[in-house]
Amino acid sequence: MSDIIEINDLHFAFAGTTFRLQVDELRVSLGETVAFIGSSGSGKTTLLHLLAGIRTPESGSVTVVGRDVSGLATASSRDHRVCNIGLVFQEFELLEHLSVLDNILLPYRISAALKLTREIVDRAQQLAESVDINDKLGRYPGRLSQGERQRVAVCRALLTEPPLVLADEPTGNLDPGNKWKVVDALIDDAKRRQSTLVTVTHDHELLDRFDRVIDFSSFHASSQTAEVAT
């Protein structure tokens, strides 16, 4: 199976802080579901941002979906992210003034690299149906429960059918019932489309669902390599 993520000798630091992230080598295959675990501040979210091209490493290479994103110009990095990576955030990051449907369609409205068509709208409705929010497409996020909001965010991340989905603590704000719904939606989609899912989580109940778990605790402390702890 080909690698969709390939990190070599990655070094990253936040200016003005002692935080340092170093990853000598990390590979994730296409179709694999991976969970990043570790204590707060261990660099899980930072690594997701590096993978997404939102942050740029000091040195090393980060190849995602066949392209080294570490040295990409802002516009190229953005277009690569839009077309290849779906993002799910802990705080949902929905736009309050847009309806559920418009929030799901937002990548197509805000990015010049994507074109909104009737088929895309149909796909958005199908995704909403798959996570049981199809009857709430006209509502604003403020009138949804936390679980419903995260399911909207999941639909938005999956709408472009990206080969890689990066989810940053997607169940962090959810009750147990909604937690499983969201995780199931993400994993089922990855299995169905043979795409890759990388999730940051603190919830150890979820780990059995993933193909692989990468523990960041020792990783940050030693500032050496990412250990694979399955």
Binding site: A52, I54, R81, V82, E93, S111, A112
Partner: peptide, 20 residues
């Protein structure tokens, strides 16, 4: 600010966001 950041993360260029 957060809404603007979200639009940037999910693919909005600075020009497009400023345009909105």
């Amino acid at each position: 600010a957060r809404e603007i950041e979200t639009m940037a993360k999910i693919g909005g260029s600075r020009g497009r966001i400023l345009g909105v």
